[in-house]
């Protein structure tokens, strides 16, 4: 390609023929001359808000993503209760609840990030790409949008906590929401990275399904992370999701009136060679992984689009 094209413009010329005609509106430059932090954050804000508007409009999605955790809590949780010894102090529904909450957040976050693929497929991405904003603003906006959307989903799942035997203590609810939001952020970042690379919605769905289910099952969402065979112990310790589910379960169990021994059995925490990783450490791991994924996604997005 070897081309030289000039679309020139001489609005500055006072004797511009067109401008002399009566009734002609002179150009009003509404757009500021340089991008600033204010314009960037406004762009981030609108990209994020669009995710919320779409989430609100998509009532079916809200219902279906609520259905899944309900199945886990009330069908599997109730069904498996008959297997446990009748003297058990802990309702299996309560045990499964943190996993179901995490799962709901995961799916919402990843699919929300999939809107990048959607936008690309339906052309809307181009509207954003030709705007005078940085590529980073688009990715950050999408990341925050997915985080907020998935946190809303978490609120919906938290609203049924009582039915699973989780007490509605305000402090517990706030803690769970915070941990869910962190999980949402990391999963959205993961979803964005996937959607930058994968160009079709089918491909995106396939890839994320293939990755999410194994991650979910080895995150200790459905079983305690202690007394596992060695191979499974290793798998669960390298699974980043385990570090997001475990704090949720620890928080839930710390609000149940249980003997210390029972609590240790159901919510043993994650141990590294005998050392129990503190909750704050676990949350830090999740946060750092989320930031790293988003960073890679931003650099990929800037190179590709």
């Amino acid at each position: 390609m070897n081309s030289k094209t000039v679309v020139s413009d001489s609005h500055e010329a006072p004797d511009d023929k067109d401008c002399q005609q009566d009734g002609l509106v002179r150009p009003v430059i509404y757009v500021p001359p340089a991008s600033t932090l204010a314009t960037s954050s406004r762009a981030v804000g609108i990209v994020m808000r669009r995710e919320l508007i779409r989430f609100r409009a998509d009532k079916i999605r809200i219902v279906t993503t609520l259905l899944q955790p309900m199945l886990y809590i009330f069908v599997i949780g109730t069904g498996l209760t008959s297997l446990t010894s009748n003297g058990s102090l802990v309702n299996l529904r309560t045990f499964i609840y943190p996993g179901a909450l995490g799962m709901s957040v995961m799916f919402t976050a990843v699919f929300s990030a999939g809107s990048i693929v959607w936008d690309r497929e339906f052309g809307f991405m181009r509207e954003m790409l030709v705007a005078p904003i940085s590529r980073t603003s688009i990715v950050v906006g999408k990341g925050l949008g997915g985080t907020v959307v998935a946190s809303f989903q978490a609120i919906i799942v938290l609203s049924v906590a009582g039915m699973a035997g989780v007490p509605y203590s305000p402090a517990l609810m706030i803690e769970l929401l915070g941990e869910a939001a962190l999980l949402a952020f990391t999963l959205t970042s993961f979803g964005i990275l996937a959607s930058v690379r994968v160009k079709t919605m089918q491909g995106f769905m396939g890839l994320t399904q293939m990755l999410i289910m194994p991650l979910f099952f080895t995150a200790g969402a459905m079983f305690p992370l202690s007394r596992l065979p060695a191979w499974l112990t290793v798998v669960t310790r390298v699974n980043p999701l385990a570090y997001a589910i475990d704090p949720i379960r620890r928080a839930v169990f710390s609000y149940l009136a249980l003997p210390q021994k029972v609590r240790e059995m159901y919510a043993p925490g994650i141990t590294w060679d005998g050392w129990k990783v503190p909750t704050i450490g676990e949350l830090l791991i999740v946060l750092l992984i989320g930031i790293a994924l988003l960073g890679v996604a931003i650099s990929q997005f800037r190179n590709i689009e």
Partner: peptide, 16 residues
């Protein structure tokens, strides 16, 4: 190319 969605492999263009 004129809308900055693709880069020209050679040559130049000016818009406004």
């Amino acid at each position: 190319m004129l809308c900055t969605l693709a880069s020209p492999s050679s040559g130049s263009a000016k818009v406004a």
